[in-house]
Amino acid sequence: GQTIGWDAVPLEKLLRDGTQLPDDVPYFIDNGARTLGQAEMWFGGGRGARNAVVVLFGSGVGACLVTPEVEHGRAVEWGHLTVRVRGRRCRCGALGCLEAYAGAESLLDRWREQGGDVPEGADEETALTAMLAGAYPAEGREADPVAVAVLEETAEYVGAGLSDLINLFQPERILIGGWAGLQLGTRFLPAVRLHAASYSLRHPAHKVTIDLGRLGPDAVTVGAAILPLADFFAHGGRRAEPAPEAPSASLPTAVAERVPH
C-alpha cells in the first residue's frame, strides 16, 4: 500500500489474529475502487452496461474498469496517471499524479495554500463541506473566489483524467462515486463532462455518459460485502466439494488378517 506507507504488511495474518473465525474460512481482500464498481454494476448505475468505468473519488482517486473480458471489474491505478510534468508531489511519492490534483486531500491542500479558510482540525469531509459552502454560498452572500478557482481547476483535471479512460477503453458509461465525488455532486458534474469531452477523441466521447453513482457513500462497503457472493457465483453457485476422507488406518490391517497365508 504505497500511498499509506505499507510495505510487506501481513494484512491477512493481522485480520486472522484479531478474529475468532476458523482457519478454513477464506478472506476476500480487494481494492476499494473495485468493490465500488462491483456494487454499482450489480445494483446501481452500471446495470446493463457491458463496458463501464466506475470512479472512486474520496481522499484520493481510483477507478474500476469493467469490460466483457473483465466482467467482474479490475482496479486500475487511474489516480496515478501523470497529468502534469514536474507537477505536485503525490502522496505515493511520484510527481504530477492526477491524485495530487483531484483527490479531496489535495483539493483541500490547494485551497489552504492559496489562502482558503480551511476549518482548523476538521476532518476531510467537514472541510470539503465548508469549501463547497464558500464556493456556492446562500443567496445574498459573496462566493469565496479561491474556493471557486480551486474547484474549477479540479473539475478540469478530473475531466482530463476521464478523457484518458475514454480514449483508452471507450466505455459506454462512467459513474463517479465515493464520498467526495457524491459531495461535489451535481454542481461539479457539468464542468467535468465539458472538460472530458474537450480532451477526448470525438467518437468515443459521443458514446459515453458521465453520471454520479446511485448507491450513496456506502457503496464501497456494499461491494465488499458481496465479494463472497460474487466468488460463489463465479464457481458455478455450488458449495466446494469436501475433501475425500483418507482410508482408515486399520483397513489394510484388517484385510491382511483375513487373507490366507
Rank of each mutant, 00 (worst) to 15 (best):
G185K: 10
T253Y: 14
D117G: 10
G73C: 05
C64N: 03
P119K: 06
V9I: 13
F233L: 09
P137W: 12
A243I: 10
L21R: 04
G58Q: 08
V85H: 04
P171M: 00
P22S: 07
D123P: 10
V53E: 02
G46Q: 10
G5D: 06
A196P: 05
I226G: 10
P10Q: 05
A122G: 13
L15D: 07
G161F: 01
V148W: 14
E241T: 12
D123I: 08
E125F: 14
T19D: 03
T253A: 09
N51K: 15
L107R: 08
D164A: 15
G44P: 03
D231I: 01
E99A: 12
L212I: 03
T67D: 02
L168M: 08
A127H: 00
P137A: 00
A219H: 02
H206F: 06
S59Q: 06
L14V: 15
A256N: 09
L201R: 04
L162A: 01
Q183R: 14
P22F: 03
D117E: 13
L15S: 12
G140M: 08
F57P: 09
R214Y: 02
G45P: 10
L212M: 05
D7I: 05
L95F: 15
Q38N: 00
R193P: 09
R141D: 14
E156A: 13
E241P: 04
P68A: 06
D218T: 10
V148C: 14
F232V: 07
G134R: 06
S163I: 14
T129Y: 08
R202F: 08
L184D: 05
L212C: 00
G87P: 00
L151M: 14
A249R: 11
V158K: 12
A225V: 15
R89S: 00
A133W: 06
Q2D: 03
R34W: 14
N51I: 06
V192M: 09
A147C: 01
V146N: 04
L229R: 03
T154H: 13
